[in-house]
Structures are given as C-alpha cells and as structure tokens.
Design a protein around this nucleic acid. Structure first.
Lengths: 341, 341
DNA sequence: GACTGGCACTCGACCACGCCGAGTGCCAGA
DNA sequence: TCTGGCACTCGGCGTGGTCGAGTGCCAGTC
C-alpha cells in the first residue's frame, strides 16, 4: 500500500470512527481500531498531510481530527461503497408500503419509513403535476357561475380548483365541456394542454370555446403558480438525536424545514432516478442548512422522474447507509406508482 | 387591599415578571417593579404563603420563585383578563387571511398567522367532515370496475376515495348513481347519509341499490376510519426560542408533534367556539407534553364548531395574549368559512 | 527513503476553592 | 399587621492547578 492509498484509507477510518463515536479521532485510536499495518506516528504524518490538503481539521490544537466538508465529499465520491440493505430492511420497506390505500397514504408511509430507516428527517415530494398525465378531468357544477375543476392524474394525484365564470352556464353546457375536455386531454401531459385545446376542431360549439380557454388557463395557473408545491415531511424529532450536531442550535434548521420552498428546490433541482445526489454542509445553497447534509434522489417509473425524495441530517451522517436507503425507497415507490394508484 | 387580594396580586406579579425575564423572581424585584404598596419583607411573607399553597416554587434555596402549573392555572382562571388585540394585530389578521384562494390556502395562512402572532407552535384542524354538510358528490368513472367518489362539503373541503366494484358498471348507471346520490344528500350532513339512503323510495332502480349502499359505506368508512384526521402545523421553530424552556430537550415535544393523533385529540376534545381551553403542563394527558401548555378553541359559524385550532408552547407563556390571539383568529376563520369557500 | 519510537509541548476538560450577591426566614419593634 | 434589620444559604463565577490525550519533530533503524 503506497502513501496515496494509505492516506485515503486513513481518511475513511477517520470518517468512520468520527461517525461512530461523535468525537474527534486521534492517531492512536485509529491505529488500534483499524488494522492499517503502520504505527500511530506514521498515521500522524498522513493526518498532517490530509489536514494540509483540507480533508480533515482540528477543532483545536491537541485534539483529534474531524472530517471537513471537503473530506466527506471525497469520501462520498471515491470511498463510499454502496451498502446493500439488510433483508430486515428490505422486509421493512415492503411491509411498510403495502396496504396503502391512496397516494396520500403512500407518501405518508414513505416519509415515515425513510425517517425510520435513516434516522434522519425525511422529505417526499408529491409526483409532479407537470410530468404526470391526465387520467380524468371532472367539471363540477357548483353554482350557476361557479365550477370546480377536479384533475386526476395517472399517479393518483387529485387536485381541484374553483373557477368563477363571468356568465352563468347551464348543466348541459357543463356536460359538453366535460366530455370535450376529457376527450381531448385524457392520457396527455398537462403541459401540452394549451396546444391541444387550441388545436381542437372548429366544430366545437362557439359557446364552448371561451369556457375551454378559461379552463385551460386555470389548469396552467395551477401548474405555474404553485409549481409542484406539495410535499410531506417527517422525522423532525431525529434532529435532536445528538446534541453535538448543529453547532448553534437546531433553530435555523427547523426554520428551513418550515420553508417548503427551500426544501422543494433542494429536492427538485436535479432529479435522476438513477443517481443519488448528496449535498454536504457548505455545498448547500441555503444559509440555514450549512451545517446539514441533504441526500436526494428522483423517483419514477423507468427513466422519467415523477418527483423527488430525500433525507436531511447532520454532515456527520452515515453516507453509504443513507444513500442506499434513499435509493431503495425511491425504487419501491416508483414501482408502486407505476403499477397501482 | 386585604391579605388574600394582595396574595393574588403578588402571584400575578410573579407570573408577569417571570414571563418577561425568564428568571426566578425575588421579593425585592417585585417591590420595585410593581407598586404593591408594601415592602419586600411583606411580600416575602406572602410568597411564603403562596409557596405553602403550591402556587409558586423555589428551584433551590436562596433563589427567587417560579410559578407552578397550579399557579398558572389560578392565574388563567382568576386573573387573566382578556387582552384586546392591538389594531396592528387586527390588521395583520385580516390582511393575512384575505386573498386566500381555497380551503387549503386558508388553513395554511391561518397556521402561519397564528404562529407569528403568538410566537408559538400553531395547529389548525381541517373542518370536521362529520359536522359539515354535503355540497356536492361527484362520481367519476375511472374504469369499468373502478369509481372515484369526490365529496365536496360546504366548508370547501374536498375528499376523494377510490371504490372498487365487484361487477363492471356502465356510464349510464354511473350517471344515475350520481344524480340519485346528489339529490338525496346535497345539503345534508354526512352522518345522516345511511338513514337517508335506506329511506330512498323503492322506486330507485334495483340495479342501483347495492351501488348506493356501497357508496354510503365508503363515505362512512372515510368518516370512521380517519376521523377528522387532517390538520396543519406551523411555527415549529418557535420551540427553540428560549433554551431555558423544556427542561430535558425539545425532543419529546417534537415527537409529540409528529403524532398527529395526539394533537388532534388535544384540539378535538372540547370544541366550543365561545370558550378558550387552556391545558397547563401536567394537566396534559400526553406524556411528552408535560412541559408545555396548550391553548385551544373551536372555530365555526355561530355555535356549531366545525373544527379546532390552537397553539402549543412552554408553560411559561403569555396566557392572556395567546388566549385572545387564538380566539380572534378562530373568529375570523369562522367567518371566512361561513361566507366564502 | 520510508517508517518508527521517543520526547517535549500544548491545551481543553475537570476539579477544588473561595468570593460575591441575590434571596430567604425570622424576629423584634412600630 | 407591617416593616427594617440581620444572619444564613447556596448557586454562579472566576481562579488556579492537575491530568491526559494528542500533536509535531527528530533521531535512529530497516
């Protein structure tokens, strides 16, 4: 084992011990606990080098070393092997998720499951409306000038919007509207709605035209104004597991968790079901999360990502375990959404 | 002012100072800050009596006094006058709540508003399904043997359930079902549904009967299985405002907040729009909330409570202010739900 | 040239000590 | 019944000293 290799081994050892003990780790402890085949003095030299390069740091002179964000980054990129889940964990996942009765239920179970598996805070985004297809569009005639548009997607999501009309409409017009909308949009993406509607044959009754346009506008507003705004959060209590994490307090973290927009941006930025994304400490764009790491992945059927999910915890977290748990859960719910619903 | 009266005044002063300073309060400070008209020595005697009776306590010898749960209780019952809201607060409430586009929006704004006004954790329950009336029932024909039942209540709540049927049905049967259900149940309470449906004239097609029963069963299941289970939570970060509160950690509190069932029981137990309910520390039925106080009230139009809302914070909280904020917000959203929707 | 053992040094954690002062309880006197 | 005075208690805080884990460096060895 040459110098470069051993340095990486030392870094791995430092990170593993630090995660396990929550305390700065010294050269002697490393030599004892890991069979690196060299003496503490040698390890000290390696650690000095690692420190120079910025992978580890000393909280104060004469203390052990602690990994830096840069160190974790290297660890995650180069060193972390995918840790296969135990069969117990696999069983937990499937038994936890089966028996869900609807989308809400699936997502709530998922978030609880993720929080439990990783012992971190878990976040699950609702399947994106924009990327879903329309399964059904219902128009409900609430009052003479008031309709409710109920949208059901192929992922089981149900959204409704109330629409106020300038002029009263009759039940038969509403029925027409319903048939036309459904016929045109069923199984199509919501984002394509405007095109599809404008392309409808002129045959469509002139009375219906403005109504159709209004409806389409409302649908799109729903997409644009609140872009994929829904999510479920769970496991907040896990933030308090170790008092040592979160240097100041957990206050800024709790505040960030209240800002759903922030979380959604974190989850939504890159969504690739085949790659787990890890943001470590300072890498986080959001101020309040500088002392946390965020592990996210997209879920969906096939390559199409329907939404994202992830967990959030102290930078000192079990990256391999967390990453594989997140990936596994995403895989499962991708399957569930594809088949059931 | 006789002894008994002054003792109460002293208790009030202790509580007010303790809430303001977060520190045990001594006799001298009391004499200075409040014009009780007697010397510290006299106050000391009164405090000794109050301590004997269990209204205040000393964290340790030679420290000031701190109110006990029993002391807060007396304060809330006897001493706390309703504190009228400032005009700024009133303005905040109305400007915060106007412009809400649907029920979800109203409730989310409400919870943020409450959290901000009281600087505590806020909880708002969705209007009870059981106590709402049906505005519309939509039956969506998803597939041959699969229907979706969409329920819209007069409070703007929309709930849906998927129903699997043993045998396929045609579109025209679904239309019949829709008309019949709507005709029978519109403007009626959901809890009355079974009676109403069984009382339908025999004229109803024999084909429809079993379907109607299935639907009613599903509706009731929704009520029974998840009794008023929905709520919105906000302001969790306020838990960390003062490190002194929450003797151990905030861990058990966060855990309790994750248990929606617990919160819903707290909010749901007594719901009277005209009476603010205060549970102080040990009075709380739930273990994890023994170091918190919960202030709840029902909201609704007129005397009928549609749901509840409230806040949760350290026992050391500004009871008069919190109580009036909670009451005011409940009044506002009662109005909004009655008129708009 | 790379590794090792030894050694002096640093610095936080921990503890004992003592002072300070806020707050108390009690008592005699108004 | 209230008040002023007084002795007493006890936690908070700053000081100083010890301990030990951990380091960096250096000379020696393979």
């Amino acid at each position: 084992m040459n110098l470069e290799e051993r340095k990486l081994e030392v870094l791995r050892a430092v990170i593993e011990d630090y995660i396990a003990t929550e305390e700065p780790v010294g050269s002697k402890a490393l030599a004892e606990r890991h069979h690196l085949g060299v003496s503490p003095a040698t390890i000290r030299n390696d650690m000095a080098l690692l420190e120079e390069e910025g992978y580890i740091a000393q909280p104060h002179t004469s203390a052990g070393r602690v990994p830096t964000d840069k160190g974790y980054r290297l660890f995650v990129d180069k060193l972390a092997e995918f840790k296969p889940l135990s069969t117990a964990e696999r069983r937990a996942i499937s038994s936890f998720l089966e028996g869900a009765i609807d989308l809400d239920d699936v997502l709530h179970r998922t978030v609880r499951l993720l929080a439990q598996l990783t012992r971190q805070v878990a976040v699950v985004q609702y399947p994106s409306l924009a990327r879903s297809a329309v399964r059904h569009l219902e128009v409900v005639h609430l009052a003479a000038t008031r309709l409710m548009l109920v949208l059901i997607t192929d992922t089981g999501r149900v959204e409704q919007r109330v629409v106020e009309l300038p002029v009263p409409v009759t039940e038969s017009v509403v029925a027409d509207l319903r048939t036309t909308l459904n016929g045109a949009l069923r199984d199509r993406r919501l984002t394509d709605a405007p095109e599809i509607v404008t392309a409808l044959p002129e045959a469509t009754g002139p009375e219906l035209r403005p109504l159709l346009t209004t409806m389409t506008t409302v649908l799109l507003e729903t997409l644009v104004e609140r872009p994929d705004e829904r999510m479920v959060l769970g496991g907040t209590a896990n933030l308090t597991r170790s008092a040592l994490d979160f240097p100041g307090t957990i206050r800024p973290v709790l505040e960030a968790l209240e800002e759903q927009v922030v979380l959604l941006r974190l989850i939504g930025e890159v969504q690739d079901p085949s790659r787990v994304l890890v943001r470590i400490g300072e890498e986080n764009p959001y101020e309040g999360l500088r002392s946390t790491s965020v592990v996210t992945v997209g879920y969906g059927s096939g390559e199409r990502a329907l939404g994202g999910l992830g967990v959030l915890g102290p930078t000192r977290m079990d990256y391999p375990g967390t990453m594989s748990a997140v990936a596994a859960v995403a895989r499962y719910i991708g399957q569930i959404l594809a088949t059931g619903g």
